[in-house]
Amino acid sequence: MADKIKPGSIIRRNSEIIGSDIDGETVMMSVANGRYYGINQVGSSIWHLLHEPMQLESIYAALQEEYEIDPETCEREVLVFLEDLMKNNIIIVD
C-alpha cells in the first residue's frame, strides 16, 4: 500500500466500502465505521471504473473519453479527487 498517488499507481476500491446507485447518483458507506459519503458524477464514474483495480493512466484515459475534456484539466482534477477519496479511505493505492 502506498500513501501517495504517482504515475503508474494501481488504484482499487477499499473492500470495506459499499457503493450503491440511487437515481443515478452514487452513495457510499464504510462498513468499518458506518460513515456515509455522497459523491458527484465524476466520482461516480471513477467508482464504476474501479470495479477492477486500474492504473492511474487508464483512469485518465477512460474519463477523457467519457467527458471530452482536455488531458491537462482532466489529470489535474481527477488527481485532486482521487487524493480526496484516498484520504477518506474509499480507495487504496498500490
Binding site: I22, D23, G24, E25, V27, N33, G34, Y36, G38
Partner: peptide, 21 residues
C-alpha cells in the same frame, strides 16, 4: 427527492440511527 438528497433525508429520519453500529 432523489439520489443523495433522498438518501440523506431517510438516513436522518431513521429512528435512533445511533444504535445501528
Amino acid at each position: 427527492l432523489e439520489g443523495w438528497e433522498k438518501f440523506r433525508h431517510i438516513k436522518k429520519r431513521t429512528f435512533r440511527q445511533k444504535l445501528v453500529d
